[in-house]
Write a protein that binds this DNA or RNA. Structure first.
Lengths: 355, 355
DNA sequence: ATAATAAATGACTTCGAATGCAATATATTA
DNA sequence: TAATATATTGCATTCGAAGTCATTTATTAT
């Protein structure tokens, strides 16, 4: 009791101290107690005015809100998070190498729209994940969108702490986790079908980094469809998703085969663009006359006139929306089971494939 | 007193409740009290073990850390932030339209390296800033990197709350704020010099959105240098930093002039690329034979063989490092005055300008 | 008007870690 | 060995908002 009283006295003094100054220049930020005192009500009342559905009379609300405006009060989300156990923050993990800015900006603006804030973790190597997991917890994120690979152990850690995770473009077949993916295999099959129908006979495939699951799915998808169609003349090379690695891989392909293949299937658009440039400007080949090139993703630059790449367009908006809503649903209700959603990519025919 | 005691009893019961379960599966996260009880020490001692420079004996530290490991304890950064008034989070504001992924990833990884976390705010229009400012405060960010425009009023709000702001590529000449910029004017002057030296006589300038300060500086920089050199045959058009707007602006330029200018100065690389493609694939012009094109930024795609654009390369790493260290210094010591740092861009000569 | 019910309000406690201060343990010096 | 200085430790309090519960006030039914 006595303590409480002296506590209030302190606050009173603090108030006096800043009195006369404009709230714009006051050092200490306003608290709900300041508002309560100013409005002549209790702190609980102030708190309730910021929670909709709470039992507050109109008179009270008006009175409090007037003080709120006058003092420039903003609730402290940190303090709120401590008691409610909701930080209203989600972690977004992206790996530097192969992220599309579109994805990040879609995710970010959709979360923001719903009053959820994004703590960004960008990692250079997917193996750096372990280091950031601790930080995710320390900051009490309500959920995580991971565009990076986690080990089953790491996944079950999140699980045990009841922090839902939605994977973006990483599927875990045998583990019950939520994910939003573009159907890599189906996409590659569409590309292969197109290439085979238009008479291409010899193929090279340029994959991404060996540890990339997405790249694996794409290359395997292409290979299995080619095999189904009875085509076995396939050379495989690995790149690292970059422009330069695409061109370099093409050189290696040609060296290996001793000739130029009919068609080049690249695990992403950027490498495909690298190949087109390599073919045209270093190897003096015509694209698509001498060699056809296809990519995957549908990034902005793939549709630029210089490339007009045939590729699979990922439905980024739909995928981002799905990831955001799936995550937030599971944040709201932890009993919603994990769900895997797979979106079909759209074949966009460009002029990088001969008819 | 009595209250404290009952409080402790509650905790004791809570503990009992989860006892026997593995910490990996326990619902409630471990707190410093749990660790304290497990190690048979006080909560203060646990807290001190996580603060370096604190007065803790080796024996105590070992004992506590053993319990920490066994229980899988992680300090709650939210609770810590409440009492220390340091969230260890910084806000990063980027505007969707014209952000380079490189910048964001550089900033993010540099902050992360230093144990600071990034709350990402991406806005569609620079005018949306006002909406996110409140949120920045609610989350008690320690500082802000803004790659967006703030009004003087908004700036002084941050100032009054002692939240340091560092602007990235936005300079405010008359206001004492920190900023890291690439010298837009100097860069444009270099480009103009190159173009004039190589005999270009007639010019068109394609700017960014009219409300973009950076674009204004770039176009004005180019124009004033051209004027200094006695060149007045200049047509101006505005784009919006996108590929498509570059091509469209080129069409308008030609319409306006009734002929093709010698050189095209674009406010960024992406529009320059749009212009090159428009010229080559729609207008059947040779670049650089019929028209020279220069850009600004030095984005990845500008150096692709298809474009090999002459441009000003921004020193992104240096600028990001500067922004991060300037911000954190001012977070540590609020009396460090604002500082404006200007970095020179590097002229990268490509093959988009005829000799 | 009065009882019964519902709505509004305030006092107090809580979340989890950090910290000032007092109490204790250890080291140093005389 | 006693006296003093120093290093460790624990207790109690604090940060700011939200929730619990008891109390007061307004509303409705009788």
């Amino acid at each position: 009791m006595a303590v409480k009283a002296s506590n209030k006295n302190n606050k009173q003094e603090a108030k006096t101290e800043t009195e006369g100054r404009n709230q714009m220049t006051s050092r200490r930020q306003m608290t709900s107690y300041d508002v309560a005192r100013h409005a002549g009500v209790s702190q609980s009342a102030v708190s309730r005015c910021f929670k909709d559905g709470a039992s507050v009379s109109k008179k009270m609300r008006d009175r409090v809100m007037k003080s709120v405006k006058e003092l420039g009060y903003q609730p402290n989300a940190i303090a709120r998070g401590l008691i409610t156990r909701r930080s209203n923050m989600v972690g977004v993990i992206v790996s530097n190498l192969n992220f599309y800015p579109e994805v990040l900006s879609e995710l970010s603006s959709r979360f923001t729209e719903r009053g959820v804030h994004v703590l960004l973790f960008s990692i250079d190597h997917e193996s750096d994940v372990s280091r950031i997991i601790d930080q995710l917890w320390q900051y009490q994120v309500d959920g995580v969108v991971a565009a990076a690979h986690l080990t089953p152990d790491q996944i079950s850690l999140f699980d045990s702490r009841h922090v839902p995770v939605v994977f973006y473009n990483r599927a875990y077949q045998d583990i019950p986790v939520s994910s939003v993916c573009c159907d890599q295999v189906e996409g590659e099959r569409q590309l292969v079908n197109l290439l085979v129908e238009s008479g291409h006979k010899s193929f090279a495939i340029i994959g991404g980094p060996k540890d990339s699951v997405v790249s694996m799915q794409r290359t395997q998808g292409a290979i299995s469809r080619l095999n189904e169609l009875g085509i076995t003349d396939i050379v495989e090379e690995a790149g690292d998703y970059t422009y330069a690695s695409g061109g370099a891989a093409l050189q290696k392909v040609i060296q290996k085969r001793g000739s130029v293949p009919d068609a080049l299937i690249c695990a992403n658009d950027i490498m495909a663009i690298g190949c087109m440039d390599e073919a045209r400007y270093r190897l003096d080949l015509d694209v698509p006359g001498d060699i056809s090139v296809v990519g995957f993703d549908g990034v902005r630059s793939s549709s630029w006139a210089s490339f007009d790449l045939t590729t699979i367009q990922q439905p980024v908006e739909s995928m981002a929306e799905a990831a955001v809503s799936m995550l937030l649903e599971r944040v709201e209700n932890e009993f919603i089971p994990p769900e895997k959603r797979s979106f079909s990519g759209v074949l966009r025919k460009g002029n990088s494939v001969r008819d």
